[in-house]
Design a protein around this nucleic acid. Sequence first.
DNA 1: ATGTCC
Length: 478
Amino acid sequence: MISIEKINDFKWLIPRMEGMRVPGIIYISEKLLNKAVSEKAPEQIINVSKLPGIVKYSLAMPDVHWGYGAPIGGVGAFDAESGVIAPGFVGYDLNCGVRLIRSNLTADDVKNKLEDLINLLFTNIPCGVGSTGALKLKRKDLEKVTAEGAEWAVKNGFGTAGDLENTEENGRIKEADPDAVGNRAYERGTSQLGTLGSGNHFIEIQRVADIYDKTAADSFGIFPGQITVMVHSGSRGLGYQVCGDYLDRFGRVAADYGIKLSDRQLACAPVSSKEGRRYFRAMNAAANYAFANRQIMTHLIRETFSSVFGVPYEKMQMSLVYDVTHNICKIEKHTVDGREKTLYVHRKGATRAFPKGHPQLPERYRSTGQPVIIPGTMGTSSYILVGTEKAMEETWGSTCHGAGRMMSRHQAVKEGRNRSIAGELAGRGILAKGVSGKGLAEEMPEAYKDIDEVIEIVEGAGLSGKIARMVPLAVIKG
DNA sequence: ATGTCC
């Protein structure tokens, strides 16, 4: 039995016990804690707290759930000298992330076009496990993609300079090394650029249903009744392979650095070690691939809208609001006990949420704070939030990343037997097109926590502010 | 999440 003590309505403490270097903190409500968090997630929060060089606390967001090695919804910062880096605390889908594309279309404009849009998106953007895209790149070009990220995509005609401006890291992480990515990863990545993938990855056409902060919404280009398009995808087989390769490697070398692993899935190496630095550069290379992937899909989405409406997409003002990554480790400066420190911040199923004034934000968001894009499920709302100063102080500038699973995929498939999830969604006015019925069942809304409750918690805890809520109209699923 | 088992 793990003891979890209430700090306040939205914040809970796992006190430091034998072997823990720092305490655990879970941002959650009593209701969600009892209903949606199994014992396995707190065990992983504790395992993370035992890693060398972890600073202050092992954190979990309200969408926390059990994952490979470390919890999804977990955040932890590590000292730049004594800390470690752990692939299992970044996730297999390196730079899995979300972007939101705005438009000047209203729900009325798309009412009679939704079916065409969703069918053509499904045709134009390959999805599903192992799906391959229209682009087949030579190894040399692929290396440019891992070095240059979304910048490569824009350079090759898939998007605009404005897209880069509105992407975390401008869509290109500088400290990336194409040579740190293995052959097998490149083989898998060759034909997958511009593909959606499977699982919880999706492209969704949404309607803006609520505005909570008009000033911020205005500066984000968001208005009531507006059509937005949300993309959730990552680095596909390339990132998966990078994660796997370095997990193997770290599993073998951790002992050489005197690290005793409490869970092999949480294999790690010192950030300052040869292996640690190499993983960091490979991870960033895979992250760049993911930025390019979402960028190329953005272009395909714009073309799809153009062809359905018969007007150039520029006329529909389909610009990028923001692109966030929620599976990554970043070098960031944070204040620790009154002093500025350089930290390796791991976010696994957690979103950066920097406050207004932060120097890393694009000029246009300097006075509002960073847009935080949070998807719900196929059947529920999604949100635009904004980063806060309190997140900077308490969670290394982090917030939740989505609703967070409540049921295992296996359990969801079982629940979905003799049901048509697409049919049920259609009954609620949501057009869902998936590669497989099983895939849709795995992603049924009931398999997830209530996104509205999750958002209430991050807002109540002061980790982000609500800007707008979108509802799903139509979605494609891998 | 994932060429859902090299």
